[in-house]
Design a protein around this nucleic acid. Structure first.
Length: 1059
RNA sequence: GGGCCCAUAGCUUAGCCAGGUGGAGCGCACGGCUGAUAACCGUGAGGUCCUGCGUUCGAAUCGCAGUGGGCCCA
């Protein structure tokens, strides 16, 4: 046991503890210690290797760490491999930026092998950087052997899963409309689309009806570039549509669109008048043929028939007639499939028109809007053209506006598993419940087939080999299998090496791999078995899978929770996790999300630099429920830091005494001091054991905020503000008495509890305290606090009655402080007595049981406890006339009557009314009878008056009176205390050691005070360690001389050090 | 436009499930302590409990509608 630094220096504690952990490989040894415990299989949701952690990822890992440390202390064998998500477009985009690439062509020219190698290198570098950031947060995961999606074994788990899907008939190749990023030239998942505002054209187009002269169907679109691909128009069969003759500039034409929209459409087209010619249902319009408006410049369109079809998805917005381009829209494509329409798609993967679009060939579609609008206008088919600001999808990585393209992709048909998936969700424990029962459920209910193919380079290659002659395909499950099938094995299963492997088809043709790689979400989807190296080895899988627990943010509803569910169904027909804690998002102080563009990002490192990791952890865990969003607030972090500093001070306070006394915790048993325990000792032990109970039950429900707040509250309220104050005098005694040993023992026991309770949350500080307090000698010392067992509360030490009594006494002490302030009598001056008027018997019990504590903390010479309902007999009484009652009775003389009441003896009035119901006095005024007025009960109210020499203050269950009458004894002690405090102050100013001796001269002209001080001279000298002390009306001298004003009395004090 | 979550003092929040006088901490003001001292403690001021409607003897709490914020989707 050693004394420690004055200030809580998180930085040096944390680096020191980290070093110890590193050197002794503490993490591994702690996990080994628990290896026979019940298994707790946790799967780390793999962060993407971007290179830096942000506050959200920090929070995520801090939550994980706190829970896993707790579980480990509870005796569980925790399996906690860290994971990394290392493939995919985000890294490709970063590398492209670095190499200044613009298109896929640049990559192909650079060489796929070099490009992929660069991506790999980049991902590994980032992983290393992030690992050290997480470690600094104090996060214990298996960092030395993380699962990495780019490793061969992992990659093969992905392959195996796809093979499984194929065996179950869940793999499908199909033409679908997908979200397409024209820059990245790949399909992207729904979950990779980011919505943001964008200004686009908004046009109304007239499609000429065949065989009906001057008649047009009016459609509306925000993507003019899709008009060249128009194949049909959709109307709602049940809506009413109108045929109107509309007039403009002396001309007229016949327009068809939804009846409800006549006003808005005609206004948009600037028509000044119209006649209604006909109304019909949408179903009546079905089959109407029209001419494609640009057929003259897009000759390919002449090959198609253009007709009206019914569709339920049509709404009464814009025109009620929807332009259908099956090659460019999801609904369009589905309608097309239903009615056998061609998915005409004259746009290439680069977002430029192909030859099919004739004159538009080579133009980037988003740039073509204007030209299409012009071409429509020239032909007289443009009804109106405006602009609109609307939400539009963008590629989440490169921010390019996405387009919809009908392409051939690979799908997992999970929409057909929807019902089973919903059943599976219900089997999982969700914290909080709504995350599963409402949110995830809704998301899964809308599940669509999962497009797993991407036309990119850095990812798990899709292990499908297609025969170039018969078209049959084969799914390969492992590298071994590939070797067996082809006779060769590439050095790396990534692209481009794997692409070179071909093998013969049974038909005699040659099988080549499809060029696609997996959607990166599929990588992490298999994490729960890939991390167990399944299917290569099966032992771990059989004993551990499925995982007991995962924790991620609520954005993962559509992400990892979902992708794992899908993959789990495909591979094992079940959801691959048993319980889930869902956490919130980190927002800035004003509640906006943190983003680079807003410049409100908070880097965890900067917070750690200033306050330390334990403070950041404690802040993030205590400020919110995990599932609520966390508004990051720097001031609050500082507040938590201060709380930790108080913990530090509380821990530091007794150390010098213990060290000085050579106190050895292991040599003083609890039993040996049991008899010496005071009430306050029993109380703090009760509180500490109650704390264990509360923290444990909070942790078992993942209420980390409740657990951490309870700890902070205990440290601040119970320990620092109360217990330490109560025991201070006991630690100063120099004798080796049991009273002091009891305090030492109790403090050690309390700290045994505190270190265990705080270990999951403040791993560094708890370790530092543990190593010092329970270092050498302590019987069952473990190498680390994190190797210690969690504690069960000692129920025998919990005394709810005592806890309640102490709470009551604290309230009384506070009330006394309040009353003292009213009376301007500071705590240093004793009071003759405090009088407690309780409202119930409970107070009496508390006061009786804790009288010493109460007397000491209030600095009262005597405590008087009144009976319930009794008044203090020193209270005066005041009669207050009720003018509302006196007025009607005495009219204009009511004022005189009131004065008479005020002037009379209030107690006499009260007694009289108490006896006879009235009080009379001689006063000849209106309303009097023979010069006597009669005052009845309702005319006067009575109020207690606190005597001059006292002050009162109410508390919840009573009133306390403080009698501040000065006695010579009190004054003498008071002045002595004043003098002592000032001399101590000067000692400090002189920078004296605690055991230095001094000489004091105290010059004072006030003979009364001087006499008081002289009567206490011995006491004062003892307190300030003075060998010589003179007090009187003389000049003070010494190494330091200062003038003081003590309660209006001037003193000049001189202090000199004695050699 | 839809689903889920959130809204209480200047700030961060407890209370809400099981309706009955709204509690803390920070900050602020004033004061105290002075062998935890560049620490610590007390007192005080500060609240349309987001808005409106409803249920009820009674609503921060329950219901409905709206507003604002967050996540996810369309």
């Amino acid at each position: 046991m050693e004394t420690i630094t004055a200030r809580y220096d998180a930085k040096s504690i944390e680096s020191e503890m980290q070093q110890v952990w590193d050197e002794s490989d503490t993490y591994r040894r702690v996990r080994d210690l628990r290896k026979d415990g019940k298994q707790f299989f946790f799967v780390d949701g793999p962060p993407y290797t971007t290179g830096h952690i942000h506050l959200g990822t920090a929070w995520n890992k801090i939550i994980k760490d706190a829970i896993l440390r707790y579980r480990s202390m509870r005796g569980y064998h925790v399996i906690d491999r860290a994971g990394w998500d290392m493939h995919g477009l985000p890294i490709e985009v970063k590398v492209e930026e670095k190499l200044d690439f613009k298109t896929k062509k640049d990559i192909e020219e650079y060489g796929i092998d070099s490009f992929v190698s660069t991506c790999k290198e980049f991902a590994i570098q980032n992983m290393a950087a992030m690992t050290s950031q997480f470690k600094r947060l104090g996060v214990w995961l298996d960092w030395d052997d993380p699962y990495m999606t780019l490793k061969r074994g992992y990659l093969e788990s992905v392959w195996w899963t796809l093979k499984k899907a194929n065996e179950k008939g869940l793999l499908e190749k199909g033409m679908r409309v997908v979200n397409w990023c024209p820059r990245c030239e790949t399909a992207i998942a729904d979950s990779e689309v980011e919505y943001g505002d964008r200004t686009d054209s908004s046009i109304y187009v007239k499609f000429p009806v065949i065989d009906e002269e001057n008649t047009f169907i009016v459609i509306w679109t925000t993507t003019p570039w899709t008009i060249p691909a128009n194949i049909a128009v959709a109307v709602h069969p049940d809506f009413e549509y109108s045929k109107v003759r509309a007039h403009k500039d002396g001309k007229s034409e016949i327009l068809i669109f939804a009846s409800d929209l006549i006003d808005s459409v005609l206004r948009a087209g600037k028509y000044h008048d119209y006649e209604l010619l006909d109304v019909c249902y949408g179903s009546d319009l079905v089959g109407t043929q029209y001419k494609h408006p640009l057929v003259d410049i897009v000759p390919k369109q002449a090959e198609f028939e253009h007709k009206v079809f019914p569709a339920e998805f049509v709404t009464t917005e814009n025109t009620g007639c929807v332009h259908i381009a099956p090659g460019h829209g999801v609904d369009d494509f589905e309608l097309g499939s239903k009615y056998g329409l061609p998915a005409f798609c004259p746009v290439g993967p680069d977002g430029r028109y192909t030859i099919d679009a004739s004159i538009y060939e080579g133009i980037y579609v988003k740039d073509a809007d204007k030209q299409v609008i012009n071409d429509l206008d020239e032909r007289g088919y443009l009804l109106a053209s405006e602009t609109i600001v609307h939400r539009y999808g963008h590629c989440w990585r490169c921010k390019t506006p996405i387009i919809y393209l009908a392409t051939e992709q690979w799908f997992l048909k999970i929409s057909q598993l929807k019902e089973q998936m919903l059943d599976e969700i219900a089997k999982v424990s969700w914290y909080p419940d709504w995350a599963g029962s409402a949110r995830f459920r809704d998301w899964v209910a809308g599940a669509r087939d999962w497009c797993i193919s991407r036309q990119r380079y850095w990812g798990v290659p899709i292990p499908i080999w297609v025969c170039d002659s018969c078209g049959k395909y084969e799914v390969i499950g492992t590298g071994e299998e590939l070797k067996a099938r082809s006779g060769g094995e590439p050095p790396d299963l990534h692209r481009p090496w794997v692409d070179e492997v071909t093998f013969a088809c049974s038909c005699g043709g040659e099988c080549r791999r499809v060029e696609d790689v997996f959607d990166v979400w599929f990588d992490s989807a298999v994490a729960s078995w890939a991390t167990l190296d399944y299917p290569h080895t099966t032992d771990a899988f059989e004993t551990l899978w499925p995982p007991d627990f995962i924790v991620e943010g609520h954005d993962q509803t559509r992400g990892w929770f979902y992708s794992q569910l899908g993959a789990g169904m495909v591979a094992f027909d079940r959801i691959p996790y048993k319980s889930v804690l869902v956490h919130g998002f980190t927002l800035d102080e004003s509640g906006s999300k943190m983003s680079k563009s807003l410049g409100n990002i908070v880097a965890p490192d900067t917070v750690i630099e200033k306050f330390g990791a334990d403070t950041l952890r404690m802040y993030m865990l205590s400020s919110n429920a995990p599932w609520d969003d966390l508004k990051f607030n720097r001031d609050e972090v500082a507040t938590v830091h201060r709380s930790l500093n108080i913990l530090w001070n509380v821990y530091r306070f007794p150390l010098p005494y213990m060290v000085l006394d050579g106190f050895d915790p292991s040599a003083v048993s609890f039993e040996s001091i049991r008899g010496a325990l005071r009430q306050e000792d029993r109380w703090i032990l009760s509180r500490a054991n109650s704390l264990i109970r509360n923290v444990t039950s909070a942790m078992d429900e993942y209420k980390l905020h409740v657990a951490t707040r309870a700890i902070l509250e205990f440290v601040l309220e119970d320990l620092s503000r109360w217990y330490i104050q109560l025991i201070r005098p006991r630690t100063w005694t120099e004798a080796d008495d049991p009273d002091k040993l009891a305090v030492y023992r109790v403090l050690c026991d309390v700290f045994t509890i505190i270190t265990r309770m705080t270990a999951p949350f403040m791993p560094y500080l708890s370790e530092a305290i543990y190593q010092n307090l329970e270092g050498e000698g302590a019987g069952e010392k473990r190498e680390s606090i994190h190797a210690c067992d969690w504690l069960a509360p000692d129920e025998d030490l919990i005394d709810p009655e005592l806890e309640a009594d102490m709470a009551e006494v604290r309230r009384i002490v506070e009330a006394v402080a309040n009353a003292r302030q009213k009376a301007k009598r500071k705590l240093r001056w004793a009071v003759r007595q405090i009088v407690i008027a309780p409202e119930d018997g409970g107070i009496a019990r508390a006061v009786e049981s804790l009288k010493d504590v109460l007397a000491e903390q209030t600095n009262a010479q005597n405590i008087v406890l009144l009976g319930v309902g009794n008044e203090w007999d020193e209270l005066g009484i005041e009669a207050i006339p009720d003018m509302a009652k006196l007025g009607p009775a005495f009219k204009k003389d009511a004022g005189k009557v009131a004065d008479a009441i005020r002037g009379a003896d209030a107690r006499a009035i009260k007694n009289a009314i108490g006896k006879t119901g009235e009080w009379t006095c001689d006063l000849d005024v209106a309303g009097s009878t023979d010069g006597v007025v009669t005052i009845t009960r309702e005319m006067v109210n009575f109020q207690s008056v606190v005597p001059e020499f006292a002050a009162d203050s109410g508390f919840e269950r009573g009133i306390v009176y403080v009698d501040t009458t000065l006695t010579p004894e009190i004054e003498a002690e008071g002045y002595a205390a004043e003098a002592i405090r000032r001399i101590q102050d000067m000692r400090k100013e002189l920078d004296l050691e605690v055991n230095d001796w001094i000489k004091v001269t105290l010059g004072i002209s006030d003979t009364r005070v001087s006499d008081f001080l002289n009567s206490m001279a011995g006491f004062v000298a003892g307190e300030v360690r003075a060998r010589m002390m003179t007090i009187g009306d003389m000049a003070a001298s010494g190494d330091l001389v200062k003038d003081w004003d003590v309660e209006g009395v001037e003193m000049r004090i001189g202090v000199s050090v004695l050699a």
